[in-house]
Amino acid sequence: MRDRPTGPELADLVRRIRENDPAVEVPDDARYRELMLASARAIAERQQQIGDAPEREELQSLSRILEAKGGLADLNRTLAAAIRGGKYDPDAPGHDAVRDHLWQTARDRVRESNPKALAGDE
């Protein structure tokens, strides 16, 4: 599940900063500020390009693992609680499926936040 601030929220934040909205704190150093603005824009653009497919796949995968229906937030809450409770410990049924799901989901998020960080796992 995508985190907040989402891509559109980041794009809106960039716009507010460009319009000198005094409510938003920005770094004093101009070069650093421009780097951060470029980074925020790039994340928003990548999310837009990639679209909804990763979240649809995440939802399908969660439904399969948990054998339940629901929204992304609810199913992620269920999965998080089950992991904490030890339901998917090594050697437990479902361990590998959850591991593969988490790995895929994390990679999908990194592809949006910082695709360069995926190098080495390919």
Partner: peptide, 24 residues
């Protein structure tokens, strides 16, 4: 409201991937 704080969230996916790498 802060650009720096907002972008901090985007470090999390990489950190999560590293946690998975190191924790089986």
């Amino acid at each position: 409201l802060s650009l720096e704080l907002a972008l901090t969230q985007n470090l999390v996916p990489e950190l999560e991937l590293e946690v998975l790498r190191q924790a089986g």
